[in-house]
Simulated assay, not measured.
Amino acid sequence: MLFDTHTHLNADQFEDDVEAVIARAQQAGVSNMIVVGFDTKTMKRAISLVERYDFLYAVVGWHPVDAIDMTEDDLRRIEQLAAHRKVVAIGETGLDYHWDKSPKDVQKEVFRKQIQLAKKVNLPIVIHNRNATEDVIEILKQERADEVGGVMHCFSSSFDDAKACIDLNFFISFGGPVTFKNAKALQQVARDVPLEHMLIETDCPYLAPHPLRGKRNEPAYVKYIAEQIAVLKDREYTEIANKTSDNAKRLFRIT
């Protein structure tokens, strides 16, 4: 029983074969998947997908790279979609200092607004963080995001940062990079993060795990991440698969 907690099955890369991709995931033992929408187009596609498959769930929000494009109407639309029975979180939101499309102050404002919305609608938050860990954690603290909690998507920071996020009621999610041969520091973080605070994801179609690095990623490949976590923690694969799945269901309130 695997749970891929972060997919972009609504991306253009899956437009021609999404049904086959989903079927392969099921064959690989993936019982649930989260489809993340992060702008108008991808939120619409996410809702359309999750309405067709019982085992798919949606996250709706606005990506920090495009924060400068978000309007008040967009924020209201996110709030409206949050009432949908298959929407389980707000996101992905956060900060991204790698790309410079959206100024930092705009990103921070949009991030705060989505945290406040998540608290208003009582849903957890899916966090995107790239080169902005200190500011992400500070804003989570200031906005009392611990009241709803959430997940640090595709975590890539230190164990101290992971512990700070866990203390704020957030799960730590590992994706394809934890399988990369040169990711020794991240692998050590995965060893140290307690299993009860851990999730797994693909972030497909991006960041395919070893041995498929460089190819289009898909939910079936989340098994490689579970296998790597099992090796790193010296645990059975089935324990990792089942526990991370249970964690996801608890976070996203899926029965």
Results as ranks from 00 to 15, higher is better:
residue 15 E to Q: 01
residue 143 E to L: 14
residue 179 T to D: 04
residue 120 K to G: 06
residue 179 T to R: 12
residue 75 L to C: 05
residue 176 G to R: 09
residue 164 A to H: 15
residue 219 P to L: 02
residue 57 Y to A: 13
residue 253 R to V: 10
residue 105 D to K: 11
residue 108 K to F: 03
residue 124 P to M: 00
residue 109 E to V: 10
residue 9 L to D: 01
residue 200 I to W: 04
residue 162 A to H: 13
residue 81 L to H: 00
residue 60 V to Q: 07
residue 76 R to L: 15
residue 48 S to W: 01
residue 242 N to F: 02
residue 194 P to A: 14
residue 192 D to L: 13
residue 73 D to H: 15
residue 144 R to I: 13
residue 15 E to M: 00
residue 12 D to G: 07
residue 217 N to M: 04
residue 225 I to A: 01
residue 144 R to F: 15
residue 56 L to N: 12
residue 46 A to Q: 02
residue 216 R to C: 03
residue 172 I to H: 07
residue 198 M to R: 08
residue 212 L to C: 15
residue 208 A to K: 11
residue 225 I to F: 02
residue 27 Q to I: 11
residue 6 H to T: 07
residue 135 D to E: 13
residue 75 L to F: 11
residue 247 N to A: 13
residue 86 K to N: 06
residue 106 V to I: 15
residue 165 C to H: 10
residue 204 C to S: 14
residue 239 E to C: 06
residue 207 L to C: 05
residue 222 V to A: 04
residue 192 D to K: 14
residue 206 Y to R: 13
residue 182 N to W: 03
residue 224 Y to V: 01
residue 187 Q to V: 09
residue 128 H to K: 12
residue 126 V to H: 13
residue 234 D to A: 12
residue 73 D to N: 14
residue 26 Q to V: 03
residue 215 K to H: 06
residue 186 L to V: 14
residue 168 L to V: 14
residue 6 H to M: 01
residue 226 A to Y: 03
residue 244 T to Q: 11
residue 102 S to L: 09
residue 220 A to Y: 00
residue 173 S to W: 03
residue 146 D to M: 15
residue 50 V to L: 10
residue 232 L to V: 03
residue 28 A to E: 06
residue 1 M to S: 05
residue 147 E to C: 14
residue 63 H to K: 10
residue 45 R to F: 10
residue 26 Q to R: 08
residue 142 Q to D: 14
residue 118 A to R: 14
residue 68 I to W: 00
residue 124 P to C: 15
residue 132 A to W: 05
residue 205 P to V: 10
residue 18 V to E: 00
residue 172 I to E: 08
residue 10 N to R: 01
residue 203 D to C: 04
residue 9 L to Q: 00
residue 15 E to L: 01
residue 156 S to I: 03
